[in-house]
Design a binder for these strands. Sequence first.
RNA 1: GGCCCUAUAGCUCAACUGGAUAGAGCAGCUGCCUUCUAAGCAGCAGGUUUCAGGUUCGAGUCCUGAUGGGGUCACCA
Length: 609
Amino acid sequence: MTLLDQIREQTINWLQEKGHSFSASDILVNATRKEFAGHVTVVVFPFVKLLKDRPPAIAESLGDYLVAHLAEVASYNVVQGFVNLELSGDAWSGLIETILANPNYGEQQATGKKILVEFCSPNTNKPLHLGHIRNIMLGWSCSQILAANGHEVTKIQIINDRGIAVCKSMLAWKKFGNGATPQSTQTKGDAFVGEYYVLFDKKLTEEYQSWQESDEANDLYAGSEYDSPELFFKSFKNTYFNTRSTLGQEAREMLVNWEAGDQEIISLWEKMNAWVYAGFDETYAALDVHFDKLYYESNTWTLGKDYVEKGISEGLFFQKEDQSVWVDLTDQNMDEKILLRSDGTSVYLTQDIGTAIQRYEDFNADSMIYVVGDEQNYHFKVLFEVLKKLEQPFADALYHLSYGMVDLPSGKMKSREGTVVDADDLIREVTEEAHAVASEKGELDDMPDEAKREVYRQIGLAALKFFILKVNPQKRMLFDPAASVDMQGQTGPYIQNAYVRVQSLLRKSGEWKTSHAYRQFEATEEHLLQALTLYPEVISKAGRDLDPSGLANYCYDLAKSYHRFYHEVKILSADTEDARTFRLRLSKATAQVIEHGMNLLGIDMPERM
RNA sequence: GGCCCUAUAGCUCAACUGGAUAGAGCAGCUGCCUUCUAAGCAGCAGGUUUCAGGUUCGAGUCCUGAUGGGGUCACCA
């Protein structure tokens, strides 16, 4: 049990002696603000109504009780309704002992609960971009955080490897590719296929523009309500693709043939997908992430139909005259949503119903988390509601981890305008920036080239990942490329640097005996100890909220406290042996917690930088 | 238009289920490397938390309304 939990427990005992019950989670215990004396503060305002006394009197009573019942609490002072507790030297010394003895300090006991986390889930027609990186960082770190909270986590993704978009790049390659391959063009496979997807749109646009000269096009515009041909033709493009375009027709035919199992199409599809997967794997490896299980839309897209048909027979869904199937959610303040097209084929929602049920059966999971952007909030509300209607046992254990879009200083990322930030380019740029800074510093000069490259990568990725993870997922974020490669101030490399300083000290410290005699703590030492006390709570809160940003900010605060401590006191050449030992142990414990926390964020620590 | 999200320093972000005088970084200005890694430390300056009401011991946080920004309402995914 952590010290903070002990304080909560004793507070409950104290209330019980006065004849009141109270829930531990409602007791507010936090770090004492630096302008007041003490280390940990209990807020007594919540007890005022219960005890019917003045806040300062209540605070004194609680302070007396805690000093009497907890050896770790040395003394206290009261300011209004706040009890500021001062912890004893033994408590601090014990804390360092606890941390150093347990490499997993901060983690919770196993719960036996199985959780599935779905993230990334790309389309196979283009390479990964900045938006995927935010998704991957959130999915990965939430998975790590949930595991640290004692849950059994399985990381999965569903790969959207079929449909009209995939046919577009296949068709473009078939018509215009002249047999080129990633190997023959020295191009990464996913980028190679993405080029054909772009090429398709280019050819389609050319075709569309020449069609716009035709009498048919002019008649259509004349009969429309649009104020200008530009506006009309912009909105008509999709209809044109579906009803008049030659390329569109070819792509749709290809989709029909794919669904019919046409051998030639299937083998082309398999060939191009293999290129894409090789590319994705490279990017995942570059980001240090992996998945435990992959689902492919090509295997799951028909899965939901049976459940929808079952729902019709049970009267949960209804059919319109044209045979299309709908669910009515107007009683939940939502709309009617389509589940099967009039030709009987599945839509996105149908597929998601099927995959949810499939996964539940595959893993017998207690909870499933979908990491998907917030533009799909409504979709997931509908999905979860439909699963409830189908009385699926897991329907209440589904969670959409929704996150905001990533904007650029120039505005939204738009593939059409070529402003999408490519994931591989970004990883390369941050690594190069780390290389440039490190070379100037020269700390790594005596390392072999390969080891150096690994450190550049660790530093660059730390900058990128931390820049993204420090922001609350729910919020839209601005990605400033210049700021993301910055390595000073509130950044990943700043935190790594605190860790590296400790490693350097430990390399130079030689043998040292453990002692627990040091008691004259400096303010900077107390700040560090105070922060270390909070770590287990930071992890459990991050897990509860599925939000890594609090952990990221905690790691930064801890590193900041360490840098200050490092600057203000002498460590290797401390005045006494006891002080030297204490500071080395405190440094080591801090580095351990920094590394542990950053690992939960998916960020590695170099030994030197 | 209906529904949902959001608004904090010049900029990017914090502020635990409502708790003490709203904090960091960047950008700007000052200092600190013969001392353990200066990717560092210290200082100055920067705020009517979009606005107007309300709830209470206490509101950036909750409620109502307004305004700005975004999303969504496809037989797309």
